[in-house]
Amino acid sequence: MTLAAGTDSDTRQIALGLRQRNLVLLDALVEQYQYRLVRYLIYLLGRRDGVDDLVQETWLRVLERGSSYDGRSRFEPWLFAIARNLAIDHMRRRRIFSLDSNDDEEGEGVRPSPASDAPSPFALAARTEDAEALAHSLQVLQPSYREALVLRFQEDLSLQEISAIVGAPVSTVSSRIYRGLAMLRSQFEGGSHGI
């Protein structure tokens, strides 16, 4: 069973299935969105450990709150919003860094890496030379900037959809994208990587 959550009828089909707690539908959604959910949470948290548990909690919440998805918008933003809220609760419980960045501060964009001996998930996941070049920058980037980048350039969500997920104005989302991109771009400027 493949679901394309793009057209109105597809999203309404998902909404109906979630309201009925259709496990066949849920299994199909898990199959379809699992990798993207894992990737989003890694970008958000900047770490790999704990992500699988959050993924599981996310799907349980999708099951429990399925009736709140009305199918009038795409499924991905609703799913990522659930994952985000759970990740925030998780970070608060563990007293890890906050997602709330002070977007007005100049030069803000880098935060100290959390004390961890675990290797960077970005370094481990890099498959191209350019990705390897970006891995360290991504690791030290503000979580909110990283989140904006993955939602815009990997998930191809609109600025309005991202704004609804993160609960920030479109202008703030845009700013995070620009600043995050500036940090990453610095890896390729000045001919340092053979432009």
Binding site: Y35, A126, R127, A131, A133, F188
Partner: peptide, 12 residues
């Protein structure tokens, strides 16, 4: 190149 580089990650 930075944007394209984001597509060069594959998470296990």
């Amino acid at each position: 190149r930075a944007i394209a580089g984001l597509g060069g990650f594959s998470f296990a």
